[in-house]
Nucleic acid binder design. Structure first.
Lengths: 155, 155
DNA sequence: TCACCTGAGTTGGATTAACCAAGTTAGCAT
DNA sequence: ATGCTAACTTGGTTAATCCAACTCAGGTGA
């Protein structure tokens, strides 16, 4: 799986996102990172991912600017590095929220949502929605996909 | 890549979504479907995906209720089947929009966005955002991830 | 000084998935 | 009956993932 796809990545921003996020484990690592996990062993234990694959994915996420290495030291231990989300990584929250909402709706578990999104300060529950330029919500069913400036000229 | 992951799929809705969307090509096939492509040969030509893999992915997307098979007939041809988005498939639009927005922001091409989202009737441009219960937009930077009812009890 | 501990990785070999070119199939047309 | 088309299969190669075992760096305690 070279990166994740060629598929018009030059022009398609979804394909470009998938180049870095589309490989197995990548998005789950980001999900774990949003839960505050930072260390190799934590990712490994939580996800059950093979260590060589984890090494590769963490490296790619760092290269893509989604995670960054930060030195840490537990007392009595030598200095090691952990992985923390960058701004670009935190900007993936809508991707995770969208996946989460879809999974809850169309592939429900018996448990209810494991993660919810809320205002950092007030705790008010938040959800993802399409909004217009004024920030007013629109129903997803009313949304159409249209060609943007970067679309390939019609043949 | 068995499905896409075990990684707590039972409780994590992101993992459950990735079971069906996390394999190579799956999300790109859905993207093509939102652009109105429906046929095996179209997906194949657009994406450059191997035919055996495409067969597998289309089958899984149908099984997951994201696409459905619909018979069609070109005149002078025999009846064949094409693949169209279901409601569950159209409900993936936020996932695509989120990926798209992130890719445009953090992995820009020289071309600008290939796809935009707009009100179906008025053509007003729309974007994805977090909103509160009243449909009022909140800045993504203010959003926190919190444990929901389906979260695993703390150890 | 030196054996020992910890956590982040490597390494080698087996399994599974993706790739590719070539072939198959069903039904309509000539 | 022969050819055509578009949706697939098949067989063999290449690449990615998995897994268990091992390395490595540096700090500890004896």
């Amino acid at each position: 799986m070279e990166a994740a796809v060629d598929a018009g990545a030059e022009r398609c921003s979804i394909a470009r996102s998938l180049e870095v996020l589309g490989q197995k484990w990548s998005l789950l690592i980001v999900r774990e990172a949003t839960w505050g996990r930072t260390r190799f062993a934590e990712f490994r234990a939580r996800l059950g991912v093979a260590p060589d694959v984890l090494t590769d994915r963490l490296g790619r996420l760092v290269d893509a600017g989604i995670l960054e290495r930060r030195p840490y030291r537990e007392d009595g231990e030598r200095e090691r590095e952990e992985y923390v989300l960058t701004d670009a990584g935190r900007a993936l929250l809508p991707v995770l929220a969208a996946m989460s909402a879809w999974g809850d709706e169309y592939r429900p578990s018996g448990f209810g949502p494991a993660a919810l999104y809320a205002d950092r300060d007030s705790g008010t529950p938040l959800r993802l929605a399409f909004v217009d330029a004024d920030g007013v919500e629109r129903d997803t069913a009313e949304v159409a996909v249209v060609r943007g400036p970067g679309a390939r000229p019609l043949a």
